[in-house]
Design a protein around this nucleic acid. Sequence first.
RNA 1: GGCCCCGUAGCUCAGCUGGAUAGAGCAACUGACUUCUAAUCAGUAGGUCUCAGGUUCGAAGCCUGACGGGGUCACCA
Length: 617
Amino acid sequence: MCLMTVLDKIIESIHHSITQVYSINIDSDSISIAPTKKEFEGDYTYVVFPLVRELKQSPEAIANKLGEYLKTDSEWVDGFNVVKGFLNLELSNSFWNISFAAIAEESYATRKKQGKRMMVEFSSPNTNKPLHLGHIRNILLGWSISKIAENRGYEVIKTQVINDRGIAVCKSMMAWKLFADGASPESTGTKGDRFVGNYYVQYDKALQEEYHNWQADEGRKVFDIEAKEGESLELFFKRFKNQYFNEYSKLGKATKEMLLDWERGEEKTIALWKKMNGWVYEGFDRTYDLLGVGFDKVNYESETYLLGKETVQNGVEKGIFYKLDDGSIWIDLEDVGMDKKIVLRSDGTSVYITQDLGTAQMRYKEFGIDSMVYVVGDEQDYHFKVLFEILKRMNEPYADQLHHLSYGMVDLPSGKMKSREGTVVDADDLIMEVISEAKNSSLERGGVSHLEESQQEELFQMVGLAALKYFIIKVNPRKRMVFDPKESVDMQGTTGPYIQNAYVRIQSILRKAEKSGFTTLDDLEDIEPNAQEKELMVLMLGLPEILDDALQSYDPSVVANYSFALAKAFHRYYHENVIFDKDNPKRSSYRIELSKNLARILKKSMLLLGINMPEYM
RNA sequence: GGCCCCGUAGCUCAGCUGGAUAGAGCAACUGACUUCUAAUCAGUAGGUCUCAGGUUCGAAGCCUGACGGGGUCACCA
């Protein structure tokens, strides 16, 4: 049972009025109110249309009767008006006073711990490439939904799975062995993840060259034998690339041998693998630090890729899976509209989903999690549908508390990012660019010139990152989004810096208030909020519901849009009202107090998006 | 082809789970800094909510079907 919010009091009043006036019983959960639209008089609106059928009266009549009752009966309602079936309520000063007090609570819009554990998996990088724009979207979503879940009373364990094994990793290792001549990130002054990534690219180039040479010679003969009727050389070699790697390439052969060495635990190979992965992790950590995110638990695929085999064997005994003659194990999901899916190879090794089954069980054992959120791109929608269905059939206790936070790809204005065409936007480059852009605008304006240089740098970083993060997180995750680098460094309009600016303004007011000795407000007697102050309070009162929605729909953009709306309303308020009124110190205190609470709420909601608020900008 | 996601202003996006005259920002054009910081504010202009049916007091939202864009259908991860 959660605490009653201020708005619940209104709902309770409405519920009471319905039962009293019409003596019918309706569920108070079915009653909802919304802030009255600006074109109409009133503060909150209750829509009576749903009652029409049962009461067999006109909407106007119902609304008027309820309005009359509320006006005399409820201490929260002062007046009302009716437009068609819309009952617009004008709320009383005592309502605004308790609202003002509720918002001022330090714990406002934070739910108490409810003893539930949620694990959130996000980021999930490969060790052969630096993080890019797509990872940034993933990381921001994962971080933000973790923070929101914490706010809603969950204990959250943030985790990532690092894909640190397999043929791709061996490719970087092979290239380093062949071309690096002992170079290291230190010796070249390169960030570790990029250093290793460069060798992965070099490997690809070398392979491409080898393939090209082969095409002119032996490849030509293979073409004559294997090409399809009428297939051009070009098309054939494009199609044949994979097969070439597996069956003809010397480089490919050496790399596959390296993978076998790795799986055998051959000492030198393992040592190289550890060394290079160490470089990568150091690089990743720097990027995570810069983004202001971190993890409570890291899973390495090298430690989980063998998991799940036993699970599958047990499942065969229970009849969940079945075995084919070649030894491969399958599950038939056709009765729920999915396919037959392999869960263990004929040679007894794991496939992707086997690992995920094992990892899920391992996590449950280790942390006793109640629920699990996977932040993974929408190209894996089907995979997770299958995974969740299997876990359900295995009767795992958490099986109905699994969620795939699926997000769309990030496109550039020119189209899709493609690593082969070099259009992938590097995470570090992007972050640096956005910070330097923030620096430029700030220096132009000169608002922080009184600060020390290190403090200034810190602020530039805060503002730049706010621009980048907000730009990405304001979009509904489900949607594919277009990332225009030019727009991502914008600091005006619907942006992170715009919201930060509202906060900074308030800090400036508070500093001035302190200097000029305005007293804090001791009572709210004789103070009635004006229309804009009511509007601000209505917005602030909406936060708990916003946070519930955000978590329930796994969508941080809800919070982003809320923060913008609140900042915008404040900017307007600031322009049209004078906060420091010498002739009316009490009024001034009220406004200062209101602004202070608003700033706190802004900061809180932005922090849930992973965005920090500066004191100056 | 089967299944899944998306389609709202020139562009990028909201739209509170079916409610009032569909909203913001950017870009364009007008105005507001001797004032609590103009990274701000006020205003003008911009829409057949892809299309066609249906459901009902009421549809951008729900249903059916088209059209357009994307994804996915490996003993890859």
